[in-house]
Design a binder for these strands. Structure first.
Length: 281
DNA sequence: CTTTGACCTCGATT
DNA sequence: AAATCGAGGTCAA
């Protein structure tokens, strides 16, 4: 799928394997989790946390995507103890082995390799490509998936029907998948909106806003569970979405945006007052 | 059942 | 310029 934001703010989309326009539209809506009503969940978030009123300035349209489970799993296997730049490089390497789709504005695009293609990659290949100890996580997980009844991809998708804890338990049987990675996969691809991936950043947020009494203590598996519970009891069934929004708002790039927006409002207001207009608020 | 260290690589920091 | 740190963790002892 290709997406492009146009001048007027609309998005044009192209599904490369779509059978019809209706089919392409359906797949796009599925990917965007369009069934989830943002106004409904923002109401819940805002009612229990005043900070969401401010986040709405920039993030009110933000959605948690419904990604392909296999692609999501492999991506987060790459993410452990790692930085975004290198994760991107690693995922690009794996993707380059998938079927070539076409070139857009100089960038080559490939389909994410299905399990049969992934199984052709050796641990040695991955190590040479700079995966480090994560190489054996990938090959181990691919092998484990292929031994599942139904062939792996189906097994992964079937997890969408289960409850969060069952999903986490199932994912954690795969090599390289621990609590944090399992929660990411559950939230971003397996229909578990209450999954809370607790890493050092979320820990910072949590001890600042939700559990100040725990500030300063070390992050242990037990405390991860405490944090997850705190998020769910505060924000409800879509706590994972709330957590993602708070997480995004903490990113330097977003902070800059929020800040500039704040100043834009001030300037706008000042300009209006200068022109003798009444302030609407 | 909790705690600790090793594990690959790559930039940024010192 | 060479050494050290730590990055959205996991696993095994």
């Amino acid at each position: 799928m290709s997406l492009k934001q146009l001048q007027d703010g609309d998005i044009s989309y192209c599904l490369h394997h779509a059978t019809s326009d209706a089919n392409a539209r359906m797949e796009l809506l599925d990917f965007l989790n369009a069934d989830v009503s943002l106004s409904d969940i923002w109401k819940v978030f805002s009612d229990s946390d005043a900070r969401f009123a401010e986040l709405a300035l920039h993030l009110r349209g933000a959605r948690v995507l419904r990604q392909d489970p296999l692609e999501c799993l492999i991506q987060f296997l790459c993410s452990s103890n790692n930085n975004i730049k290198r994760i991107t490089k690693m995922v690009d390497y794996i993707s380059s082995l998938g079927n070539y789709l076409g070139t857009v504005e100089g960038f080559q695009f490939h389909a994410f390799p299905p399990l049969e293609q992934l199984s052709l990659i050796s641990e040695e290949d991955l190590r040479k490509a700079g995966f480090g100890y994560r190489a054996k996580y990938i090959t181990g997980t691919v092998t484990s998936l292929q031994s599942k009844p139904g062939g792996g991809a189906e097994w992964l998708e079937s997890l969408r029907q289960l409850d969060l804890q069952e999903v986490i338990d199932a994912l954690c049987t795969l090599p390289g998948v621990g609590l944090k990675v399992a929660a990411c996969i559950a939230l971003f691809s397996l229909d578990q909106p209450d999954a809370i991936p607790v890493d050092t950043h979320v820990w910072q947020i949590a001890t600042r806003y939700l559990l100040p009494e725990l500030a300063g203590s070390q992050l242990t598996p037990k405390l991860c569970i405490r944090v997850a519970e705190a998020f769910v009891s505060r924000y409800g069934k879509y706590a994972g979405w709330a957590q993602t929004l708070l997480f995004i708002a903490e990113l330097p790039s977003q902070k800059a945006l929020l800040h500039s927006h704040f100043w834009n409002i001030r300037e706008h207001k000042a300009a209006k007052e200068k022109n003798g207009e009444a302030d609407a608020r």
